[in-house]
Design a binder for these strands. Structure first.
Length: 606
DNA sequence: GCCGTTTTCGGCCCGACTGTTTTCAGTCG
């Protein structure tokens, strides 16, 4: 059982306990346990075997450890089985509906025996809900509305998909006369992979004018509420956006509060409390006196903490680091000098080699690697050994055209099912830069997957493990190899781990990246661009790296070109080149003949 | 159910809003 599955199960137990009317603090303990496990990179299945390892995690005590041991050993636990025997899964899922919490769900189930959504809708339409304790006509209507919305809504959206509309709305509000500052808070500001809604924080300006500009944005489908200080809308896309107008004096406290995460805020309030202070969205106060509120920095400082970058605010140890003054200096977009994973029309990219190089230059990059696919991806026009040798001349010609850009002759080589690479070592020796990736056979046992990944990262010609898990956010789980072992082997063999900046990949995840870093890995952050416009995605990779706590020193492609070349040198390639001169014969340096014309446009490999 | 430089028992974050109620429970973030 994966950590994510264990976390989901604990969360489910919490929901069922809540409906069952259990002690709220017991419920909270299960929620907290779920959160801790989800954020923990080391496999709890492995930890379960080690006495005391689970109990050493903050928030996991004797009981939760026992449940986790049940789950990892057998896939089930008596407690969950008993709860589910009493409360059907579909009833528990009612709590996902807006306006229905555990208490009302319990009432629905016990008083009316409602067991599924169809029965719930029928009862609401028949007016059977309004007489129940805690219900009225309004709640009954809201239930029907929530049922309709739930069937239309898709849930969370990728950060990158929310990005343009979020900024468009912020700019529209910013343009109102008198508006001082506009910030996008919430999980958007923490740069999570996906966001559930957007939180806009505004100071200054005439409230009426601000709200009017907000609710009249062309993308607004539905105004959910409109007040003096708070309005909510739903966009055409289904995304909910809340705007809050806050006094300039309390902007820092409000920004802190609405950025979250919840776990982070709870920890901050506990610290405030210990110091005889109280923290809310209006400020940090001692009795009536406001201690800090105008900026986030002031509030953190007053609590004895360094300012914490939003990407780290998940309640996973960042507050201890802030107190000790040992927060990492996170990598920034401006640090990135190279993009070492991209495609062109020669395989499955949409733009030509020249267009990609020009776009990279326009973006101020010093170095790029052109990394077409290998032959296993026939549908993507993957390169075979002969095509790689032909490519040497094409890259040489490209270098001649772009003297101000360093261009590495790379390839994204498929890792086959058994861990062998798709091309032979002599061919790999021709290349400056070898990315290895998994594009097929994602369903494997963890043991087979681990052996496969280990074999790949132990190849002496390999530079980086591309999008290692092969996951697609909201679409594919990814390969279940044991990252601890693979990361250790990669670090020992000088193979970097990629943080792939494709918005639906963001692979490694921040949880995996933290573990890989702990095992000594270095990283690259690459766009895996299949078009010039994709080079813009670099920021999303940087966000992911920041969430993992990576610094500039952890990321190879922040190095100036000469240092990068030293850092990525593979002894095997040097030896091979010295022996055969494979990559550097005059014939291969000369421009090559044109590539054969493709008959069919390639499909992009995923 | 978890946790402990005040504690192994007695606490456990905070406020807004809604709607159901006659002073507050439930939900949400």
């Amino acid at each position: 059982m994966t950590n994510a599955e264990v976390a989901r199960t604990l969360e489910r137990i919490a929901t069922l306990l809540e409906i069952d009317g259990a002690n709220p603090f017991r419920v909270r303990a299960y929620r907290e346990g779920a959160r801790v496990i989800e954020g923990h990179a080391e496999s709890v299945s492995a930890m379960a075997a080690e006495p005391g390892a689970l109990e050493a995690l903050k928030g996991i005590g004797k009981d939760l450890a026992a449940r986790i041991r049940d789950l990892t050993a057998t896939g089930r636990t008596d407690m969950l089985d008993e709860l589910r025997a009493r409360i059907p899964d579909e009833v528990a899922a009612f709590t996902e509906l807006q306006g229905l919490g555990p208490k009302r769900v319990k009432t629905l189930f016990e008083a009316l025996g409602i067991r599924d959504r169809a029965a719930l809708e029928a009862a609401a339409r028949a007016g059977q809900l309004r007489g129940l304790p805690g219900f009225g006509e309004k709640v009954e209507q809201n239930v029907l509305k929530a049922l309709a919305t739930a069937s239309a809504m898709t849930g969370r959206v990728l950060l990158a998909h929310a990005w343009p509309i979020a900024h468009a709305i912020a700019e529209r509000v910013q343009a109102i006369r008198g508006v001082e500052s506009v910030e996008l808070a919430g999980s958007f500001r923490r740069r999570r992979e996906t966001v559930g809604d957007l939180d806009l924080l505004v100071t200054g300006g005439d409230p009426e004018a601000v709200m009017q500009a907000f609710v009249s944005h062309p993308s607004v489908a539905d105004v959910l509420g409109r007040g003096e200080t708070k309005s909510s809308v739903r966009l055409d896309s289904g995304l909910q956006v809340d705007l809050r107008l806050v006094p300039g004096d309390s902007f820092g406290a409000a920004l802190l509060y609405f950025t979250g995460s919840k776990a982070h805020n709870i920890e901050l309030r506990r610290i405030a409390q210990e110091q005889g202070l109280s923290l809310n969205e209006y400020g940090l106060t001692r009795g009536e006196r406001v201690v800090a509120s105008r900026t986030e920095e002031q509030v953190y400082r007053a609590l004895g903490l360094a300012w914490i970058p939003p990407e780290l605010r998940e309640g996973l140890g960042e507050i201890d680091l802030a107190r000790a003054g040992t927060l990492p200096r996170l990598v920034e977009l401006a640090d990135v000098r190279a993009d070492l994973h991209m495609h062109s029309t020669r395989s499955d990219g949409r733009d030509t080699l020249e267009a990609m190089a020009q776009a990279a230059l326009d973006r101020g990059l010093e170095t790029i690697a052109i990394t077409e696919h290998s032959k296993a991806l026939a549908m993507a026009n993957g390169f075979d050994a002969a095509r790689v040798r032909q490519s040497v001349g094409e890259i040489a010609a490209l270098r001649a055209r772009f003297p101000r850009l360093h261009i590495l002759h790379g390839l994204e080589v498929d890792i086959l099912g058994d861990g062998a690479l798709d091309l032979d070592d002599d061919t790999l020796a021709v290349l400056d830069w070898v990315v290895v990736s998994i594009h097929s056979r994602f369903e494997m046992t963890p043991e087979a997957a681990t052996a496969r990944a280990l074999a790949a990262v132990r190849n002496p010609f390999v530079n980086v493990f591309g999008h290692p898990r092969g996951r697609l956010i909201g679409g594919r789980e990814g390969v279940p190899f044991d990252l601890e072992q693979v990361a250790e082997a990669a670090a020992a063999n000088g193979v970097a781990m990629e943080i792939n900046a494709s918005p639906d990949r963001l692979d490694l995840s921040e949880v995996d990246a933290r573990l890989a870093r702990a095992k000594g890995c270095r990283f690259t952050i690459d766009t895996d661009a299949h078009a010039t416009t994709h080079l813009e995605n670099m920021k999303f990779g940087v966000f992911q790296a920041r969430r993992a706590g990576l610094t500039r020193e952890d990321v190879l492609n922040t190095l100036p070109h000469a240092k990068l070349m030293t850092a990525i040198e593979r002894p095997a390639r040097r030896a091979s080149a010295g022996r055969t001169g494979a990559a550097r014969t005059p014939a291969e340096r000369a421009p090559a003949k044109r590539a054969p014309v493709k008959r069919t446009p390639p499909k992009r490999a995923r």
